[in-house]
Computed example of a mutant assay.
Amino acid sequence: MISAQAWADAQRLWDFQQMGHELRPCSVAIGLGSHDLGVADTTADLYHRGMTPLIVFTGATSRTTRDRMPRGEAEHYRERAMELGVPADAILVEPRARNTGENIRFSRALLEDYGAVVSSVLLVSKPYEERRAYATARKLWPEVEWVSASTPMTLADYIDSIGDARLVIDMLAGAQQRLMIYPQQGFMIEQRVPDDVTAAYERLRDAGFTSRLVTDTATQK
């Protein structure tokens, strides 16, 4: 059973991750690979709305995606976007990245090799990782303007889409922990974390929502 306090704390972390950026046209959209094909759907929607002329999908595989996305997260995202009407020549694929830092570094290198002139980026992530992705991107590619985006949905709807409430809360706790400890490791910029968000994270950690927490902070995951 998940307590009422845990639900409230999860909602607080979910709300904090939402950056609330106003969407606007950008030079390129970067869709961060994961288990969630909704990232590809949202990136394709942004393309059709004229928010970007070019898409980079980035991601290899992980323990949670190697079975369902055997050709790699970025390649499955590309296939999904093409199913949704995005032309192949508007999509670049970066197939090697295995963490958020590599997503940004490898995508930047790919765009430079492609000859793209990039002044702004729509950064498309899972809803519970908007702020973490933004903080990483700002650290690693500070010369461009970043606009965070994700699929607009509630925490309850996201849990329904995943089908595992405890896993989602574990992921929320993991994303928040990284946001708090990775700046000291040089992986992302510092962001002010309100006291009530820190307290919510600590209660979830102490309640056992720990499967996605980092124990070795020397490597970004």
Rank of each mutant, 00 (worst) to 15 (best):
L54S: 10
I30V: 15
D36Q: 07
V86S: 06
T61M: 12
A109L: 10
I55V: 14
M82V: 12
V56G: 06
D89S: 15
G33Y: 05
A60N: 14
L54N: 02
S34H: 03
T64H: 14
I30S: 08
E75R: 14
V56E: 04
L110Q: 08
M82G: 03
A60S: 15
G85K: 10
A29H: 07
M82F: 04
S27G: 13
N99E: 04
D36F: 15
E73F: 11
R80F: 02
E94G: 09
R96V: 06
E102N: 08
D113T: 07
D45F: 09
T52Y: 01
R66H: 14
A60Y: 09
T42Q: 15
G72N: 07
L32D: 09
E94K: 06
T52N: 06
S107K: 06
L46Q: 13
Y47M: 04
A74H: 08
A97D: 00
G85L: 10
R68P: 00
L54A: 08
P53Q: 02
M51H: 13
N103R: 05
L111M: 15
I55W: 01
T58D: 07
R78Q: 12
N103Y: 05
V86E: 08
V86C: 05
P87H: 04
T64L: 12
V39L: 01
T64N: 13
D41T: 15
S107M: 04
R71V: 01
G31E: 03
A97M: 01
P87T: 05
S34E: 04
R80G: 05
H35M: 08
R63N: 11
S34V: 00
L46H: 13
A44S: 11
A81C: 09
D67A: 14
L54W: 11
A44F: 00
D45L: 13
A97S: 14
E73L: 12
E83Y: 01
R63W: 09
R49I: 00
V28T: 12
H76T: 03
S62R: 02
P53C: 03
P53D: 09
R68H: 10
A74P: 07
T43R: 08
T52M: 01
S62F: 04
R49A: 08
R108P: 03
E112I: 10
E79D: 12
I55E: 00
N99C: 11
R78P: 05
A81W: 08
P95N: 09
R68M: 15
M69P: 01
V39P: 02
H48G: 09
A40E: 11
P53R: 04
P87V: 06
V93M: 04
A60P: 00
M82L: 07
V86H: 06
N99D: 15
F57M: 05
Y77N: 07
T61E: 14
M82Q: 15
G101H: 01
V39G: 01
T64S: 15
D45Q: 14
T65N: 13
R80Q: 12
M69K: 05
R63K: 12
T64A: 13
A109E: 15
